[in-house]
């Protein structure tokens, strides 16, 4: 009985204790780690990944998976550059265009899965390839920047609008002047919104029900197809938000950026399973998962660990979190998670 309580406590708080331990260790071992600037740097490094991870979380909740988020984000990056630099649209139109593109991709993903009965992994894998290819066609595979030569011989004269760059680069004053970057604000807002939606509305609850037993959810009168499509649309829109922030930070349509986005955000969502012993996708866990990876990498970097060890560290954290989730949770007498 006592053993079981310890096990339950370990499953519930183990990951958070580990996180606190890591923060303490780096604060003592790495000079400058425990400073506002460093904390904000961590947040900034995980903001975009975190937003994408929250999107993939909503598809995981309905027992789906979205592999296309990385390519939606880079498509959104290229689209925003194309819209402002070549088509010379305003920042507002550009943002609207990107969000619409994300929603549309999510809709197509959802319909492929719900109506065409394509398995989720395959549908979104197909969409991923399609988008990676599509985003290169208008520029013949080149990155987009002001002053580039277009295929018809003219020069692209548009520039990234100042308002647009503000989204990616503005820093709010907090304790220290120009501390808190806009992307972090967006990340926190998205995280709270997704957390509230999935955890505290009936729509979120029904999505969890679909993920746990789709047939049962259907037989109590849930519109399963609509919720599944909704999940993929959330994922698509959030991925396009991530792409917008990336474009606004870079200030150019860099074709090679955003390579790691998919894997990093999926890792964050899966690490999130372990937080508070949830053993299921959840917004709070995803945000913590993203932070965990960010803190670890920041600390290691400050202790002069070479950059090429980063992926190894991420992988190790992910495997540990998965063991934590699936092995320990299966040993616990299963209590209701909702």
């Amino acid at each position: 009985m006592n053993n079981e309580r310890i096990l339950n406590l370990a499953i519930r708080y183990g990951f958070l204790v580990l996180l606190a331990g890591i923060v303490m260790y780096f604060s003592l071992a790495a000079e400058g780690f425990a400073s506002p600037r460093s904390a904000v740097f961590v947040l900034q490094s995980v903001a975009i990944t975190g937003i994408l991870a929250l999107g993939v979380t909503s598809t995981l909740v309905v027992d789906g998976f979205d592999l296309s988020i990385g390519s939606v984000a880079t498509s959104s990056l290229m689209l925003s550059a194309y819209s402002m630099v070549i088509l010379e649209y305003s920042a507002f139109v550009t943002v609207l265009l990107c969000l619409t593109m994300g929603a549309l991709v999510g809709l197509v993903n959802g319909l492929l899965i719900v109506k065409m009965r394509v398995p989720d992994l395959l549908a979104t894998l197909g969409m991923m390839f399609l988008l990676i290819g599509l985003q290169r066609i208008p520029t013949q595979g080149n990155s987009i920047a002001t002053g580039m030569r277009l295929p018809d011989g003219s020069i692209a004269e548009g520039t990234f609008a100042a308002e647009f760059l503000w989204i990616g680069r503005h820093r709010f004053d907090m304790f220290i002047e120009k501390l808190f970057p806009m992307p972090v604000v967006v990340f926190l807002l998205v995280a709270v919104a997704v957390w509230l939606f999935l955890g505290f509305t009936r729509h979120g609850r029904l999505m969890y029900a679909i993920g746990s037993n789709q047939r049962a959810a259907e037989l109590v009168g849930t519109n399963v197809s609509r919720y599944k499509v909704l999940a993929y649309m959330i994922s698509g829109v959030l991925a396009s938000v991530g792409g917008i922030l990336l474009a606004a930070r870079l200030g150019r349509g860099d074709i090679a950026s955003g390579n790691n986005l998919l894997l990093d955000s999926v890792a964050a969502a899966l690490i999130g399973f372990a937080v508070l012993g949830a053993a299921r996708p959840n917004a709070f866990g995803t945000a913590i998962g993203a932070l965990f990876v960010g803190i670890l990498l920041q600390g290691l970097t400050m202790m002069n660990a070479p950059y090429y060890t980063q992926d190894f560290v991420k992988g190790a954290v992910l495997v540990a979190a998965l063991v934590f989730t699936f092995y320990l949770s299966s040993r616990r007498s299963s209590a209701g998670r909702h």
Partner: peptide, 8 residues
Amino acid sequence: NAVIPDFD
């Protein structure tokens, strides 16, 4: 057809 195993 009926039980949601993850729920209480």
